[in-house]
C-alpha cells in the first residue's frame, strides 16, 4: 500500500471530484437529450467515486474502494433501468426531447 494520502493531496482530489460533479450537474440541467442527461448522472457517480477513493486512501483502508463497488452496482442498475425507460419513452414519442414529457403539471 502506498503511503497514506496527505491532506494537501486529499484537497486536490476533492477539488477534482467537486468540479466533475458540478459539470455533471450542469450537463444534466442544460442538455435536453434524455440519454445525455442520464450520462451526466453517470458522470456525477464518477465524481463521487473519486472522492470515495481519495478518502479511502487518506485513511489508508480499503473501505473507500469497497464502497465504490457498491456505487458501481447502483450505477449499473440505474443505467439499465434508465435506458430501458428511455427506449420506452422514445417508442412513445419517437423523440428524445425532455421537454415533450410534461403532462404531470399542476
Amino acid at each position: 500500500m502506498t503511503a497514506p494520502l496527505s491532506m494537501l493531496a486529499l484537497n486536490h482530489y476533492l477539488l477534482v471530484s467537486g468540479v466533475l460533479f458540478v459539470i455533471g450537474l450542469i450537463g444534466f440541467l442544460t442538455r435536453r437529450n434524455l440519454i445525455i442527461m442520464f450520462l451526466c448522472t453517470e458522470l456525477m457517480f464518477q465524481a463521487a467515486a473519486i472522492a470515495m477513493i481519495a478518502f479511502g486512501a487518506y485513511y489508508g483502508n480499503a473501505q473507500g474502494q469497497v464502497f465504490l463497488i457498491f456505487i458501481l452496482t447502483i450505477a449499473a442498475a440505474e443505467a439499465a433501468l434508465a435506458l430501458a425507460l428511455v427506449v420506452a419513452l422514445y417508442r412513445r414519442r419517437s423523440t428524445l426531447d425532455a421537454e415533450s414529457w410534461s403532462e404531470l403539471q399542476g
Binding site: L25, F28, L29, R32, L104, G106
Partner: peptide, 18 residues
C-alpha cells in the same frame, strides 16, 4: 399563485433541487 411552479418539466425540478 403557486400552481405554475409545478410545470412538469424535469429540468425545472432539477434546477430547484440544485
Amino acid at each position: 399563485a403557486v400552481r405554475p411552479l409545478q410545470n412538469g418539466r424535469l429540468q425545472g425540478y432539477g434546477l430547484g433541487m440544485a
